[in-house]
Design a protein around this nucleic acid. Structure first.
Lengths: 190, 190
DNA sequence: CTTGACATACCGTCCGGCCGGTATAGCTAC
DNA sequence: GTAGCTATACCGGCCGGACGGTATGTCAAG
């Protein structure tokens, strides 16, 4: 914290933060260069000095998100004891856990950035796609019966989408029941 | 087909179709009133005669989508033999089937309309939310162990999202394996 | 002659991007 | 050490185009 106070974030970081916050609060259409610049405490010219176009800004936002996702994924995996189903357990913790790693405002912001980038150009999602491909490769070597790992991560994706678009909000009990159901998939096939 | 040729769709239907096709082909930002009108073979004024604003157009698009979703859901359920897990089996058929009901261009168009509406105003998704709520009520009385039905439909949602955002495309074998894995959740709890 | 179903022309706004300017820091020559 | 040069990191204003929406005209059917 002292470090943060002594070393306030530089302009590019502030711009990225402000842009992400705007998208989360006011939606994709609320993200304009002027608004992002103002909220970051720089002028529009200053923003364009760091990010030459709106696309460049969104690209940087998404790359940062992909990096963050990958680190979070690695942390979830590292927190699980080794052995079969390690990746699946990490996925369940990410999608159904109650701690700071799951379903909080950070996920909302990730969803908002995600939608904003796709809105502008679907190709901007490529860094995210690379992370997902890596996760799927890991999942394939997770030692579970075929399809179990994919099914678990698809269910986590579904929960993510439901929250991102505010489709429904399961109760804590329902979430726990879903998790227990999915954990059955990690048992060896009968 | 003869009927279609003899009774060409009226202007509102053509406009709705054209708008959906534009969103699918050129993205949310490609949907302008001018473009929708042109593709539907009417002028911009003609479009605004039927849909007083862009929001009204999107609202009509989404209501039509919700109606379609509900009818499709009912058809999927009706196609399943009665008994426990009927709704879950319908969901699996919808999300993992190979027939005309699953994962084709119609789903892509649904996703595009969905994103367009959310982009303009998240409240426009309310008709879809109502359909989902109804499906979840049905699922709760499906006679499966707690969480199983929700987990299955969440996995189907995840597949839908993966396709909507082109995140990854599992092979036919992988999809079949996922389905078999999820079908294990319909067996009674051990 | 009225009304429904459009067409045409236009307006105001908003937004992305460009440009000219500027303060500051660092470096170099003398 | 200081005058001059250059690069960095911005500021503020402007422009052009696109887009949503309006106002008005048209015209066939009943």
């Amino acid at each position: 914290m002292i470090d943060i106070l002594l070393h306030p974030p530089d302009a590019p970081t502030r711009i990225l933060d402000a842009a992400a916050a705007i998208v989360q609060a006011r939606g994709v259409s609320g993200l304009t260069l002027e608004a992002a610049a103002r909220d970051a405490g720089v002028s529009k010219g200053g923003l364009l000095y760091h990010f030459a176009s709106k696309e460049a800004l969104l690209d940087a936002m998404l790359r940062r998100l992909a990096d963050f996702m990958e680190r979070e994924y690695e942390a979830c995996v590292a927190a699980q004891p080794p052995g079969p189903g390690r990746v699946a357990r990490a996925n369940l913790d990410w999608g159904f856990g109650e701690g700071e790693l799951s379903c909080n405002e950070r996920h909302d912001m990730a969803g908002a950035v995600f939608r904003a980038a796709f809105h502008h150009d679907p190709a901007l999602l490529d860094p995210i796609r690379a992370v997902i491909a890596r996760m799927r490769r890991d999942s394939a070597g997770d030692g579970l019966s075929p399809g179990a790992g994919d099914a678990i991560s698809a269910a986590c994706d579904g929960m993510f989408m439901a929250r991102m678009f505010r489709l429904y909000t399961p109760t804590t009990d329902e979430r726990a029941a879903m998790r227990r159901a999915l954990e059955r998939l990690m048992e060896p096939s009968p």
